[in-house]
Design a protein around this nucleic acid. Structure first.
Lengths: 238, 238
DNA sequence: AGTTTTCAGGTTATCAGACAATCATATGAA
DNA sequence: TTCATATGATTGTCTGATAACCTGAAAACT
């Protein structure tokens, strides 16, 4: 007996594929909020896989906030989809998407600089100096320098005292630097590194001086410079 | 034989709790990137639950991008953690977390206003006007007015032409408005609604005029006003 | 009649054990 | 040394069973 064509052929993780199938049905509106999914046993029979796999697929959808399960009742498509934010891997190399990402980063970094100047504590200054030191030591721009750069900005985000900035900026700038590293492995940082260090130092001093306006200006300058260095055309109104 | 105290007592979903425990260990640095987690059988014994539960917990962490599993080898803490961003439900009512969320929203909204002024198209203006109209019609501040308000800001995000702004601002302001609605069901909007309408109209006109500086200023005014209306103390440097 | 209690069936949650697929390493042959 | 093979460990999947829980209807009671 040959199963129907909708059955899952196995070249990859079964649960992920089944979850994707249901996610698509929800996205396309075939399954509307409030609708009940088939029982696990039914799915198990229909897809030709064990209930274990079905359960893992459902658990995945539940974690993503698309469905809700009630013991003894069933699984239901969630009403108001909790907005999860995800930086898709798809547009990683897309230059347009890259510009969009940078465009998003700029205001966050500037605001973070201002808040960091206001709210930072001694430990944050220590983190900033530590990252600065590492950037100056490692003349090699490619490897540790990039990581130290990332840590420097991460420290600024931490200094805001606002965990959302840590999360958002962490994800965004992490993704940006990753793309840079991947696309231009051999970027010539030798001449640039001095400029970046100067900008970072000014940024650090402005924060240490608890001067939000100066910190914001410094970060703005740094962002403009960064954009130019990677040949990005952006608008800066302030 | 009595099990150790670290065992999971069951009042809630087992997999979620175990996943949270490991997530915490990763966040706090007890488990560093590259570290290998115990085998499923070991965890099963240590936690006193079946391997099914352990597997679901691991699957959850994998979906969140915190760990990676390799068949025949084990589960490892991922190198670059959390490119996923989550707005936890935990701090929903926490006034401090609420301020943090608003603090994050401000620069995004201002930047979005500037970009919208530059990049908007005819359809976006139509969306703005439509939402504005709905807000003016429904004097009832509580119900549809809030939704129209959200749609207005959503339209601005869309007008940037940058999908990241749509995603990020959508998630953030959605969460903010949700909290407002939940906490102050009976907020007196009657006197306020006129002011909000005026601010929105100015915002719309600035965008329509393709004047980024004016749009940013209008949004800044709007944000300051919003913060005051919900009795939030924020810093505004620009 | 109207209300509460009890029961039966279905569904998800968890458990237990087994086998399959895959990988890392040790072992042995060339 | 270098390559092929065997072996053990670990995750992936399967199967069947039991527990916890919910819904709705029948039964018992007022």
């Amino acid at each position: 007996m040959i199963g129907p064509l909708t059955q899952i052929s196995r070249t990859e993780h079964l649960p992920a594929r089944i979850a994707a199938q249901f996610a698509q049905q929800i996205q396309e509106g075939d399954l509307k909020p409030g609708d009940r999914l088939p029982t696990e046993n039914e799915m198990s029979k229909n897809f030709g896989v064990s209930r274990t796999v079905i359960r893992e697929a459902i658990a995945q959808l539940r974690n993503e906030g698309m469905i809700e399960t009630r013991q003894g009742v069933g699984a239901f498509v969630i009403g108001r989809p909790t907005r999860h934010i995800r930086l898709d891997d798809r547009r990683k190399m897309d230059p347009h998407g890259f510009r969009d990402l940078f465009q998003l980063r700029v205001p966050l970094e500037i605001e973070a600089a201002g808040l960091a100047a206001t709210y930072h504590r001694a430990e944050h200054l220590r983190q900033l100096d530590e990252a600065l030191q590492r950037m100056k030591v490692t003349d090699d721009g490619a490897g540790d320098g990039i990581i130290a750069d990332l840590d420097f900005h991460r420290a600024i985000a931490a200094a805001t005292g606002n965990d959302y900035f840590v999360q958002f900026l962490g994800a965004v700038s992490d993704r940006i630097l990753q793309t840079i590293v991947e696309s231009r492995e051999r970027i010539r940082l030798d001449e640039i590194v001095a400029i970046v260090n100067r900008e970072h130092t000014e940024l650090r001093d402005a924060i240490a001086a608890r001067d939000p306006v100066r910190a914001r200006a410094a970060m703005r300058t740094h962002m403009v410079g960064s954009a130019e260095r990677i040949a990005l055309r952006l608008e800066f109104y302030l």
